[in-house]
Design a protein around this nucleic acid. Structure first.
Length: 425
RNA sequence: GGAGGGAUGGCCGAGCGGACGAAGGCGGUUGUCUUGAAAACAACUGUGGCAGCAAUGUCACCGGGGGUUCGAAUCCCUCUCCCUCCGCCA
């Protein structure tokens, strides 16, 4: 959410920022209009309230002084003011509801550093590390490899839950567990993150806080009976950890890491990426979330992306860092890097991490503030990034480390997490 | 799932229709005293909206929402959460 006062005073700047996004429905003009109406009603209703407050006090005083008839007359006058207030209140409630809804549907303006382009064609590769493996044979894609090795069972996943579900078996399940443990260990022991185990279902307010609601409810699973929403990423519960809190300056920066399943409806992508486990309804991810003082927001994005990249590097996978263009930015991010890993089988760069800086956009929605050293209360900055998404890393390991005999070599760093195992198959 | 009891400021806790943004205590900040610290004493110490260059004024907030009333922390309805007992369950 944006600061309405900032919006009022920087209309042109706001318009220019919104034009850089590919969101033509952003109701920022509507919000400004509703804000005018809201304030007009507010000043009227508050003047009436002030009058009623002092009048009501006077009624009490008159009764105590025994001046009944004066009191009754004043009481009648206050009653009619009350009616007027009730009427304006109803109007105000309506306008305010519309205003709030509009505010929640305005995306975060992009940072000036983001390349300006209408879509992903403007994304900029800023770093490429490692060399893509070459093979003396034709490398298999993970869906074939996984099936042959008996470690990815897409067919039975579909039997249990439908398309875009899968079963990891044996060494496949072990590999995922090893990855999660390895990632968590690195983040907690080397990068200063606190591990948390949050609920995987949350209330709607949490989804509003991170920006998933009201606009993107279509992508979420939900238990209507209990009004629980299934998290699409650990970002949701972890960011909301400090919702409605005022942190001390000494609490910042705060780094959290969580390993959770992620549930996504992926409704709009039917027909795309159907094979294998690249795009599925349920997957595991290790997620990093940061709460920081505003002056460190930008720098914290760099360390965040570095925290994710070191994992890819240590797994020996070729990867690149992509700076996302304005038209490809998510609703909440003002600046974002994607990390993509090369998958030799399907011959694709796969996004395995998205590292975003939100400025105070989420903090305003979730009301997360801190008290500065000077005692002022300000919104924190939030950031988050995957570190890392597991199925796609499994894909990359299988496809890049495959051998002529159909086996897969286990990256060195994972072997201690897999009982010393060095080969799958 | 059934029965009961609760929710008040950073924390504890009073208030149960007007003088209450809210007693008192703890904590915090500042000052006096002290070589320094402690103690004691004194003052200050919630969040947000609106108007204003500002000083300031004004409105709202006592778990959330709605209602009764001239007037609600206080009365009524409803929801959420917490606690106790019973049932069920890994």
């Amino acid at each position: 959410m944006l600061d309405i006062r900032w919006m009022r005073e920087h209309r042109a700047e706001l318009a220019a920022a919104m034009a850089k996004l590919n969101d033509t429905e952003a109701p920022w003009e509507k919000a400004l209009e509703l804000d005018e109406r809201r304030r007009a009603i507010l000043t009227r209703v508050e003047a009436l309230r002030a009058e009623r407050n002092s009048g009501s006090k006077e009624v009490g005083r008159l009764y105590q002084a025994g001046q009944r008839s004066e009191a009754d007359a004043l009481k009648a006058r206050m009653a009619s003011i009350g009616d007027e207030i009730a009427q304006l209140d109803a109007e105000l409630r309506e306008v305010e509801a519309a205003f709030n809804d509009a505010m929640l549907r305005i995306p975060n303006p992009p940072d000036p550093e983001a390349p300006v382009a209408p879509d992903e064609s403007g994304n900029r590769v800023v770093l490429e590390v490692g060399t893509r493996p070459s093979f003396a044979f034709t490398p298999l894609a993970h869906w074939d490899l996984g099936e042959k090795l008996g470690i990815i069972d897409v067919e039975r996943g579909a039997k249990l839950a439908g398309s875009r579900f899968y079963v990891l078996r044996g060494a496949g399940a072990l590999l995922q567990r090893a990855l999660a443990n390895y990632f968590l260990d690195v983040h907690t022991t080397e990068h200063g993150y606190e591990e948390v185990y949050p609920p995987f279902m949350v209330r709607g307010e949490c989804m509003v806080g991170t920006g998933n609601l009201p606009k993107f409810g279509d992508n979420l699973y939900r238990d209507v009976e209990e009004d629980y929403w299934f998290i699409p990423t650990a970002e949701v519960p972890v960011t909301n950890l400090h919702r409605d809190e005022i942190l001390a300056a000494s609490d910042l920066p705060r780094y959290y890491v969580a390993h959770t399943p992620c549930f996504r409806r992926e409704k709009l992508s039917a027909g795309k990426d159907v094979r294998g486990i690249k795009r599925v309804h349920q997957f595991e991810k290790v997620e990093m979330v940061k709460f920081v003082a505003p002056e460190h927001g930008r720098a914290e994005l760099e360390s965040l992306v570095a925290n994710a990249e070191v994992l890819v590097a240590r797994l020996g996978l070729p990867y690149r860092r992509v700076l996302i263009a304005t038209g490809d930015l998510s609703f909440v991010a003002c600046l974002k890097y994607d990390i993509e890993v090369w998958a030799a089988g399907c011959q694709e760069w796969l996004e395995i991490s998205s590292c975003s800086w939100f400025r105070d956009f989420q903090a305003r929605r979730a009301n997360i503030r801190y008290r500065t050293a000077e005692g002022k209360i300000e919104y924190v900055h939030t950031l988050n990034g995957s570190g890392l998404a597991l199925p796609r890393i499994i894909i990359a390991i299988l496809e890049n480390y495959q051998q002529p005999d159909g086996t897969v070599v286990v990256p060195e760093v994972l072997r201690p997490y897999m009982g010393g195992r060095s080969v799958i198959g």
